[in-house]
Nucleic acid binder design. Structure first.
Lengths: 191, 191
DNA sequence: ACATAAATTTGACGTAAATCAAATAATCAC
DNA sequence: GTGATTATTTGATTTACGTCAAATTTATGT
């Protein structure tokens, strides 16, 4: 596990039980079937989606092409950040790639608890700090790596994505075409 | 001004004067000469640099090529986020592109004030939220725009960068070669 | 098992943008 | 001003990757 995520987990495990109860009071468990959307463009993102079981992705459309921006597994939190923080309409889809079990954390309730307990605010801030550095890292990958380097990097850093998802989605996450991905793979296999 | 930045400014203008005094007690004004470095790889980023006057940039080296990741003007805050939040060695340079007047906000003092006043913690969180969405937006630009679209976009969204900085830096911020930028410009001028 | 559809691979070709090299143009020192 | 750096433009060539089209493989339903 990433050291930063570890720090966040450690802290959240040491929350006062009173705080924890109050926080978890706002949690609602939900199930979604494969292919359903948890968020669509135009809707306001009013919650965090904490993944208990299954896989989902966030993507947006550009010239009819789907670009996958994030992929979430167990214990990840799916959210449209700009929609959530400004409570404005989203421009992304969040889609269930498998049968899904999710804990929904409502914006308003979470906000209330954050305002009441500094340590919860702190945890939320750390979550976003992590998110920002993740984006910075990913941007750097696009600025410095070509298609095959990005694929090898993904294989190393996020092997589950390569193992569990169809080529269409892997390619759109790497921002390369299906055909190019296929060629990269066959070249690697032949060696 | 970006609506999110506006929200942050509004809030910071309404800080209790006691809080404000305590916060600003940790501010130190400094001057840097053109070409000097405020941060180098290997150093830990122990402060925010608030720009009072001048221009600076953050960049990293990749295969001996310099890639400019951010450019800061009056009222912007320069920081190496991952170095700052983990207090670990940075992998970027922060460089003065002009004569500079900076307000240095020390990590430890700022941290102390944040822990004491929830509204300061809140402001810091909002700063990072903005930063995260900025990165997300910039990533999207690289995923959806070609070289000339990125140039036109920069011209529209950050005209000062195009107006005030040498071609080398503009190109490295757009992640294209000098020559390509020059061709894009001459093509635009001829129409 | 078979047919039909969907996913993936392979091939041919075009193009945006990098690279290398040389030519101007602008800036600076004295 | 004159020469010497430094910045910018222009030209020729290469290349990674996209696009379009067809072939093959894999999955799905009946």
């Amino acid at each position: 596990m990433n050291p930063y995520i570890k720090r966040i987990k450690d802290l959240s495990n040491h929350l006062d039980s009173q705080v924890r109860t109050e926080l978890e009071g706002g949690f609602v468990d939900k199930k979604f079937s494969k292919g359903s959307y948890l968020l669509r463009p135009g809707q306001v993102c009013t919650s965090h989606f904490l993944v208990r079981k299954g896989i989902l992705r966030k993507f947006y459309k550009h010239n009819d092409k789907e670009i996958t921006s994030e992929i979430y597994f167990h214990d990840d939190v799916a959210i449209s950040l700009d929609s959530y923080i400004m409570q404005k309409p989203a421009d992304v889809f969040i889609e269930a790639l498998t049968e899904l079990e999710i804990t929904v954390i409502d914006y308003r309730r979470f906000d209330t608890v954050k305002r009441k307990y500094a340590e919860v605010m702190m945890l939320d801030k750390m979550f976003i700090e992590y998110y920002a550095t993740w984006f910075e890292q990913r941007l750097k990958e696009f600025q410095t790596m070509n298609a095959s380097q990005r694929y090898l990097n993904l294989l190393e850093k996020e092997p589950r994505i390569v193992q569990l998802l169809p080529v269409t989605i892997i390619a759109s996450y790497l921002n390369i075409s299906l055909e190019t991905l296929s060629r990269i793979r066959s070249k690697l296999a032949s060696r």
